[in-house]
Design a protein around this nucleic acid. Structure first.
Length: 1021
RNA sequence: GGGCCUAUAGCUCAACCGGUCAGAGCGCCCGUCUUAUAAUCGGGAGGUUCCGGGUUCGGGUCCCGGUAGGCCUACCA
């Protein structure tokens, strides 16, 4: 008689949800579906809470999406989706920064010489097209990673409406009396012919500059004073000079003073000069030796004698006011005092050209020095040079070409101490775009004053800097209060953001907001032809803003458009005709800093101040910083409530230190690095995010972001991605199993099942409930890593314990069995809970899960329309958790005893043929009773304590299932005694394969299976 | 040079106010089921918590000093 095949009577896992995610192919289909169903719009419309205003920091519209964007955009989308799901309306308006140097230079490079033939308007049109092109490309790339946003209505800094609003933001600075025009040294790029902002500088290591030591001869009065302090000094036939060191000889024509540190000691060096006479050189005592070496005077015949002041050392303070002579022009350079002079390099006497250095400028202002800067936009010397310098033919020469000429002339004049042509290697500022060295040059620029009392507004009388610092601290305080009260994170996230931006605001100079370029927003000021002064007023700005709003900023460059409002007059001379338009454009940071004002000040679901900014930590100096200043001008407060920052993406590279330790270094993913790898034949696919999307899917990138701690640096590696893929599979596999067990059937919802839930299911439900709560808190604190961590842990726990254990009845019981219905209700809740919790991070997978989930009538069509719902707590969860913990402890004891037997029999078995493995086969060395293939074959006898016994009572009925055993005998006694493991002596049920005492001889079925088969048979037609 | 930050198993991360043998997932090694199989389940190996001091009954956790790394910045004349 052949045994019946009971397999069809089992409730085995079954679902079309495939393990193969095929994300790269299927993600675009979901995107298309969400688009055509207007899912995002529907989610916003369903909002029940006030809007959550999340303002996008505009990426620069130039180049493809890189990993920095991936990190930033993905984090942003986690927030948008979570906030939507809890019921806020989140209108995320994606933006782009469109103006500025990089785009203008791209165009110029393409144009080459043709550039000169174009008008400003034509050039701007080309730039506009270029920016638009990249906006389009980046928009598609940002959407492809699953980012929600109003992509059909983005904001662009080159939109007329935006431009007009930026101008109005500028008017707020005018109102407060903070905008001024001044002549100040700024970093200047002679290649781009423009001033650069601090954020546009880079530093080049290993830059070579000339190094010159130059004599400034003393006037008679200086000689007289020094003679008093140095009694041994000779008076006749001597020369006396102060010596400076500089690496920018080209600034010497603009020298106006010599700076010394008042607290530093100075000495005279006595040596025979080249003409055989005695010369005295004034330098700082601490630097005398290095100076002598630098000049090559170390040889005995020329070694100078150091003279100290008689009695008391000669301090810099005593030198202040002494006059020395400019080395070639006929004028004096007085000695002035400056604290920043150090005894670390040079001579301790510092060449001061107020037109060519920020410190020099401040020193100059304090001492009433002339600020001259005889250099034009392109870096060529002008006729403002003194007569001697002009006679050297410097006019029209670039300053860096002027360097060798000046050095040569200094040598000819005999004022050079070291040899002409000597250089030093140091780091030097270069332009971020052209990589050409920069100069400091005094130019007329527009500035925003940080230390002027404000003329109007809520903070009238206080300075911009002061109010900004107060606002920074206010946000920090709110953040701390929220953390203490366990509310949603706000303020600076992470909290050290406060230190960063505070330090930067405290130390920054006035904000230079003008640039001398074409591709940007013009500064709407008018210059009076008769008095040559500039006027900018709110009325003028409002007038121009209205024109710009209607016609775009190009109108400023159109002579046909009248930009002068009625009744306009020069503020300085009162004339009402004869004006020219200012040719400066605004710093792009001013534009982006005004974006909250331009984008969020009006419109449905928008409001200022906004709730959230989320960008890389470089924006503490960039966007957060400029937005704060504009916020104070326009709103009298910070424009945001919360600022979240993330770190940077780089490849982790191992490096061996000299002491043998191995350290990791983060290397930016640059094109040159990738090409180098390519040439070595390495796999570089991981370095291009769009390529990763094309092969693995955006979901993998998103999970990668969520798996890393974004507050620091995020390392990128092929191995790291492999790990993320594995992590994804682990989650997906459990999701699949949940669906398989449900088999498309819709179980009774848990809230309707109530107390009919079995204890083990109540435990699992309690775990789920805790997971949902924990994830919600983590999302509210921007701790996405904790969400994934908790989900991974949960999923692994369910897979390894709860689901594994439940299989016994899920597979074998009759479908109507109460414990099957109980488990399915919880498994259904679990699938739904995981879909909800994962949706913000893995929107595609969550939707995939949702698509396959047995639906109820009130279920929305998309998981992204589901409202976040926390689950009721399980009242007896703590007791259940204790039971489960006890059971798992017992299980470990059993496993500990069982494992060696399984391993031994396994090893034996693998060495045997199939026939030898059959029960009763003679050749097998092991007795049948010792052959244990599986825990299910085992009858275990375990001793437990009385306490354990009472604590596990609730789960008593399913104890042997929880231990995954065939049969179990528990005895109260000494829990330290090892469990007794034996092959179950009884017959195994052919259907559920467990060795149980009462298996029917006729059918070889246990009672449970008999019942299940009967029920199955009865249900057959 | 300055400011801010970071440093825990091969990898990615945990560890509440300082307090039980520093945990998890992945990877690795051994074994297993064939009723989750592009799976599952069991077991195992892996850590001087960067280094050195200090405070403390007790330090991964606090303080000081180094080292390495990151971002930002600078008056290297």
């Amino acid at each position: 008689m052949s045994a019946r095949d009971y397999k069809p009577t089992l409730r085995l896992p079954d679902s079309p949800f495939s393990m193969k995610a095929d994300l790269a192919k299927r993600e675009p289909q979901w995107l298309e579906r969400w688009k055509s169903n207007a899912t995002y719009r529907a989610a916003m419309d369903a909002a029940i809470l006030p809007p959550f205003v999340f303002h996008d920091g505009p990426p620069y519209a130039n180049g493809d999406m890189h990993y920095g964007h991936v990190l930033n955009n993905t984090l942003k989308d986690f927030v948008t989706r979570f906030r939507l799901s809890v019921g806020h309306s989140v209108r995320f308006v994606p933006g782009w920064d469109c103006h500025g140097l990089p785009i203008e230079q791209n165009i110029e490079r393409k144009l080459g010489a043709k550039k000169r033939e174009l008008s400003t308007q034509q050039l701007r049109a080309l730039c506009r097209d270029e920016a638009q092109k990249w906006v389009q490309i980046q928009s598609e790339q940002r959407q492809r990673i699953g980012m929600l946003g109003t992509w059909d209505e983005p904001y662009l800094t080159m939109q007329p409406r935006f431009e007009a609003q930026v101008m109005r933001a500028l008017a707020s600075f005018v109102d407060k009396g903070l905008l001024y025009r001044g002549r100040k040294p700024v970093w200047w790029s002679t290649a781009e012919r423009t001033a650069l902002a601090e954020s546009e500088l880079e530093y080049e290591e290993g830059h070579r500059s000339p190094s010159v030591y130059v004599r400034f001869a003393a006037t008679q009065s200086a000689v007289d004073l020094l003679a008093k302090r140095f009694p041994t000094m000779r008076h006749s036939n001597v020369s006396l000079s102060a010596v400076i060191w500089t690496t920018t000889p080209w600034t010497l024509p603009a020298n106006r003073a010599l700076a010394v540190n008042p607290a530093l000691e100075y000495v005279l060096l006595e040596r025979p000069n080249d003409a055989g006479l005695t010369e005295y050189l004034l330098v700082a005592a601490a630097l005398a030796e290095s100076f002598i070496k630098a000049c090559g005077w170390g040889a005995p015949e020329s070694l100078p004698r150091t003279m100290h002041g008689a009695g008391e050392p000669l301090l810099g303070a005593e030198l202040v006011g002494l006059a020395f002579l400019h080395p070639f022009e006929s004028r004096e350079s007085p000695i002035v005092s400056a604290d920043y002079v150090e005894a670390t390099a040079g001579t301790g006497v510092v060449h001061t050209a107020p037109g060519h250095g920020r410190d020099d400028y401040m020193t100059g202002t304090r001492n009433g020095l002339v600020v001259d800067s005889p250099v034009d936009d392109g870096g060529a010397f002008t006729e403002e040079l003194g007569p001697v310098a002009q006679s050297w033919g410097l006019v029209g020469k670039h300053v860096f070409d002027g360097n060798p000429i000046i050095v040569e002339q200094l040598a000819a004049l005999g004022v050079l101490c070291n040899r002409a042509g000597e250089e030093i290697v140091h780091s030097y500022p270069i332009s971020w775009r052209s990589k050409k060295p920069l100069i400091t040059r005094a130019t007329v620029q527009w500035f925003i004053a940080l230390d002027e009392p404000m003329a109007s507004g809520a903070h009238q009388g206080r300075t911009l800097r002061d109010v900004a610092l107060t606002e920074i601290d206010r946000l920090a305080a709110e953040g701390h209060a929220a953390a203490a009260a366990e509310r949603d994170a706000c303020g600076w996230v992470p909290a050290w953001g406060r230190e960063r931006i505070h330090g930067m605001i405290a130390a920054r100079p006035d904000w230079c907001i003008s640039r001398q370029r074409a591709w940007g927003l013009p500064i709407p000021a008018l210059h009076c032809v008769s008095c040559e002064k500039a006027t900018i007023t709110r009325a003028l700005i409002e007038h121009v803003a209205a024109i710009v709003q209607a016609k775009g900023a190009d109108a400023w460059y159109d002579p046909e458009v009248d930009v002068i409002p009625a009744g306009f007059a020069c503020e300085h001379c009162g004339k009402s005709d004869g004006f020219t338009r200012d040719q400066n454009i605004l710093d792009v940071w001013f534009e982006s800093g005004s974006s909250f004002f331009a984008v969020c000040s009006e419109g449905k679901d928008l409001r200022i101040p906004v709730d959230l900014y989320l960008e890389g930590s470089d924006q503490h100096r960039g966007w957060f910083h400029s937005s704060l200043l504009v916020g104070i001008a326009t709103l009298d407060q910070a424009p945001y409530n919360t600022v979240v920052t993330h770190g940077f993406v780089g490849e982790k590279v191992q490096r061996t230190l000299p002491d043998g330790r191995v350290k990791e270094q983060l290397v930016a993913i640059s094109k040159s690095v990738i090409n180098e790898k390519k040439s070595r034949g390495e796999d570089v696919s991981v370095y291009d995010p769009m390529k990763v999307i094309a092969t693995d899917g955006a979901e993998i990138l998103r999970l990668w972001v969520a798996s890393n701690d974004f507050t620091g640096d995020v390392g990128l590696s092929a191995r790291g991605f492999q790990q993320v893929r594995e992590g994804y599979r682990a989650i997906r596999n459990v999701l699949r199993f949940l669906l398989q067990v449900l088999r498309g059937e819709s179980p009774t919802p848990i809230d309707q099942l109530g107390h009919d839930l079995e204890p083990l299911d109540r435990w699992a439900l309690g775990r789920l409930s805790a997971l949902v709560t924990h994830c919600e808190q983590s999302y509210r604190r921007y701790e996405f890593r904790a969400v994934i961590g908790a989900v991974t842990e949960f999923v692994s726990d369910m897979s390894g314990f709860y689901l594994d254990v439940s299989k016994d009845w899920l597979y074998n019981d009759a479908p109507s069995s109460p414990r099957v219905r109980s488990s399915l209700a919880v498994i259904d809740a679990m699938a739904r809970g995981l879909a909800m919790v994962l949706a913000p991070i893995l929107p595609f997978t969550a939707e995939d899960l949702w698509d396959h989930l047995p639906k109820r009538t009130d279920d929305p069509t998309s998981v992204h329309l589901c409202r976040w719902k926390s689950l009721a707590e399980v009242s007896d969860f703590d007791a259940l958790a204790q039971s489960v913990a006890d059971i798992r402890a017992i299980r470990e004891r059993v496993q500990g005893a069982l494992e060696p037997m399984l391993q031994a029999w396994g090893a034996e078995k693998s060495g045997a043929t199939k026939e030898q493995r059959e029960p009763g086969a003679d050749s097998a060395r092991w007795p049948e009773s010792a052959r244990i293939d599986h825990a299910r074959d085992v009858h275990a006898t375990v001793e437990i304590t009385l306490d354990e016994s009472s604590r596990i009572a609730a789960l008593g009925p399913v104890l042997s299932e929880c231990l995954l055993l065939g049969d179990l005998t528990l005895r109260t006694g000494d829990s330290r005694l090892p469990p007794v493991i034996a092959r179950g002596s009884t017959v195994a049920c052919v259907r559920c394969r467990r060795r149980l005492p009462n298996v029917a001889a006729s059918t070889s079925l246990c009672p449970r299976c008999t019942h299940a088969v009967d029920a199955w048979d009865a249900a057959q037609p």
